[in-house]
């Protein structure tokens, strides 16, 4: 092969290589976490910018997370920044977001109360305020992670849990469980929790309407007929004294007032 032919072939190959690389990247990039400018600024501060850009993000995220974990075990608030960095470096890793929300939402308020003298010294109102503040912080983190994590339903379930137990806000918790239910793979109990929480918040009719619709659409066809949800719906039907025509038709497997048990 002559040099001239070689050069022509090289030019053709360069053109082909660029086009094929573009197609390959447009497919591959969906599996590679997006990096935003804010993230770069954060990592530049850690002196790891080239490593991050050069393909070591998951490994650097792991190392950052281990550092955060060690600080968390020492109850050091400094772990919070590292947790955030780990999440930004590897945003697909659901466990980073989940653990971050758990650590911030469940633990940090206790650390603060202890630092301020303990549960006997800090007033209940101040304790409550601390729990709320950190729960809100954790929920902010969850909202950040939901669009990018690989299993957002796990984060939404955690959001529901924190809203109910730390904020005492059943409507907010119900909203989280509802979103979780609509984001597969959601745990089986999400729709039931929505109904239970709406009812706790006094929205019994809304609870019934939501859960009945979900039960009829998704749950009734399941092998066991989802008796937990149906029992809950039957109790609401009784509580609301719905006329039989408006109630869910009796199922073949139902015997007597079984849901009262």
């Amino acid at each position: 092969m002559g040099a001239r032919l070689g050069i022509v072939l090289a030019l053709a190959l360069a053109l082909a290589a660029g086009s094929v690389a573009e197609s390959a990247w447009s497919r591959a990039r969906r599996a590679v976490p997006e990096l935003r400018r804010a993230d770069l600024e954060l990592t530049a501060g850690q002196g790891a910018l080239l490593g991050v850009l050069g393909g070591f993000r998951p490994l650097l995220a792991d190392l950052t997370w281990i550092r955060a974990y060690v600080r968390w075990e020492r109850r050091d608030r400094g772990c919070e920044a590292l947790l955030r960095l780990a999440c930004l470096l590897d945003p697909h890793a659901t466990a980073f977001w989940e653990n971050r929300a758990n650590m911030v939402g469940l633990d940090m308020a206790h650390w603060e109360i202890r630092a301020r003298g303990g549960y006997l010294k800090v007033s209940p109102a101040d304790q409550q305020a601390a729990f709320h503040r950190f729960a809100h912080k954790a929920l902010e983190g969850i909202e950040e992670g939901v669009p990018v994590a690989r299993r957002p339903s796990a984060l939404l379930v955690l959001g529901g849990y924190l809203s109910e137990t730390k904020l005492g806000d059943p409507l907010r918790a119900a909203a989280y469980y509802r979103r979780a239910h609509e984001t597969p793979p959601a745990p089986w109990y999400c729709a039931y929790f929505v109904g239970r929480l709406l009812k706790d918040a006094g929205q019994t009719r809304e609870a019934y309407a939501y859960l009945r619709e979900v039960w009829q659409r998704e749950l009734s066809g399941q092998r066991d007929g989802s008796p937990t949800e149906l029992a809950f719906l039957r109790r609401i039907e009784a509580e609301l004294r719905l006329p039989p025509a408006l109630r869910i038709p009796r199922q073949e497997w139902e015997e007597g007032e079984w849901w009262v048990r």
């Binding site: 290589a17 094929v20 497919r27 969906r30 599996a31």
Partner: peptide, 18 residues
């Protein structure tokens, strides 16, 4: 499940051309 079908063959083809 998060890797789009055909990604690996496309990457191999891209590698081969370069």
């Amino acid at each position: 499940g998060t890797v789009e079908a055909g990604t690996v063959p496309w990457l191999l083809l891209s590698g081969a051309t370069y």
